[in-house]
Simulated assay, not measured.
Amino acid sequence: MRLSKIAAAAAVLLVGAVSANAQEVRIGVCTPVIDASVGAPFAAATEFGWFSERGISVKVLPLAGSTDCVLAVATDKVKAALVAPESVALMATKGTKIQIFYTVFNRNMFGIAVPKDSPIKSYADLKDKRIGVVSMSSVGVVIARAALESTGLNPDTDAKIVVSGPPVQSNVLLKSGQIDALSQWDMFYEILTSIGLPMRKLMDPGIDDFPSNGFATISSVIEKDGDVLAAIGRGYAMGTLYMMERPEEAARLFFKHNPDKLAPGLSLDENVARSLPAMRAASRLRALADGQKQWGYSDPKKYQNYIDWLAKHGTPIAKVQSQEIINNSLLDKINSFDPKAVTNAR
């Protein structure tokens, strides 16, 4: 599907505070369904004016996957996007200089998982199995192929990667045996667990410390519109901290600003309770790493380790260096807030 059609079909989530003087900024997120684990930081930043006090309002545009997100950035459909580093590195090989200016997830959130009682115990057990991804443009495809390569399997012939869609659809396909495993992310697996299908990630300690998604844009935009990008990052960091410290309140704010996301037939309290496991999983991934002092910091060594692992296992990014795809120049502006004021916000 063409990017323009995806964008047109997707429901745009408005999370910017209404202000006559605010600059509207469009942000892509690489998932077709926005839930509280994704949207709560934006909602909190809206509720307490953390975007508007820096002169911006924000629209979040859900897209099918990281490939669509980096294309949206490259074609100026969005100011920035919350993308996986693999997609940014792949764009670098094509001469498009996109950089991550705020790393959101300091730990690896991607990986292959199976139902808790599945006989599959390792990557090697995936031979002749079907692995579901949210879309063929998602980073789950890259991760699945690399995982298969790492155990000596041919991702083109020894397993099948198929689209299994959002959690509800994936739940049906797993329970019916139409797929055997998923290549998704931790919050996705928490949602499946919360609706009655406990999931178990296949252990791979070697990838646990890899970074995951971050806000990225064209490098020239960082130079030209740094204040706008810093406003996005600052508001998001504040919203993230609020969600970590007060998850139930953050969930309520998400549904307040996005009532269309309430599951039909469930009360607000039930929707909040169902959202909390995925939100807590997201918070663990967003938490500052040991020794990290600033929200959004991109660690060059961790990024290089990830690039090297992907390249070793078949992703064509061997010549990419981490400094090409990260940019920490906005961090002082992003972190210009009082954490106590955030956690005490009412």
Results as ranks from 00 to 15, higher is better:
Asn328Met: 04
Leu229Trp: 09
Gly111Ser: 11
Val88Lys: 03
Val18Ser: 13
Ser118Pro: 04
Leu126Thr: 03
Ser212Cys: 06
Asn171Thr: 08
Glu53Ile: 00
Ala124Lys: 10
Met199Ser: 13
Ser4Met: 06
Asp332Tyr: 02
Asn21Gly: 08
Leu197Trp: 08
Asp68Gly: 05
Phe101Tyr: 15
Lys319Thr: 15
Ser336Gly: 04
Gly235Thr: 05
Ser19Cys: 13
Ser220Arg: 15
Arg200Gly: 03
Ala9Gly: 12
Asn154Lys: 12
Asp128Leu: 06
Gly214Asp: 03
Ile98Leu: 14
Val162Leu: 10
Ala230Pro: 05
Ile34Asn: 07
Pro300Trp: 13
Asn154Phe: 14
Asp156Ser: 05
Gly233Gln: 06
Tyr242Arg: 00
Leu153Ser: 09
Ser19His: 14
Asp128Ser: 08
Ala22Cys: 07
Leu82Val: 02
Lys333Phe: 04
Ala84Ser: 08
Pro316Trp: 01
Leu197Ile: 12
Thr96Trp: 02
Lys79Ile: 07
Ala10Ser: 15
Lys201Leu: 09
Ile98Pro: 04
Arg280Phe: 05
Arg145Gln: 13
Gly314Ile: 12
Ala8Trp: 07
Phe101Trp: 14
Val172Tyr: 10
Val139Arg: 06
Met244Asp: 02
Ser135Phe: 03
Ile325Gln: 00
Glu53Met: 05
Met1Tyr: 12
Val142Asn: 02
Met136Ala: 11
Val342Arg: 01
Val78Lys: 00
Arg107Phe: 14
Tyr123Lys: 03
Lys319Cys: 11
Glu47Leu: 05
Phe188Ser: 02
Arg130Phe: 07
Ser220Met: 10
Ala144Arg: 01
Ala43Leu: 01
Tyr123Met: 05
Gly177His: 06
Asn213Phe: 05
Asn154Leu: 09
Met109Gln: 09
Lys127Trp: 09
Arg200Phe: 07
Ser138Gly: 10
Ala11His: 13
Lys116Met: 12
Gln99His: 13
Val83Thr: 11
Val12Ile: 13
Ala10Pro: 06
Gln184Cys: 06
Ala89Ser: 10
Val162Ser: 06
Glu248Cys: 00
Val18Asn: 12
Glu249Thr: 03
Pro247Val: 03
Asp332His: 01
Glu190Phe: 01
Lys129Arg: 10
Asn344Phe: 15
Met199Arg: 11
Ser164Met: 15
Pro300Met: 13
Lys333Ile: 07
Pro247Lys: 04
Ser52Leu: 15
Lys127Thr: 00
Ser212Pro: 01
Asn305Ala: 12
Leu285Tyr: 01
Glu53Tyr: 00
Leu126Trp: 09
Ala311Gln: 08
Arg107Met: 09
Met203Gln: 12
Gly226Lys: 11
Glu248His: 01
Pro316Ala: 03
Val163Trp: 08
Ser176Gln: 13
Ile6Ala: 08
Glu324Arg: 11
Trp295Tyr: 14
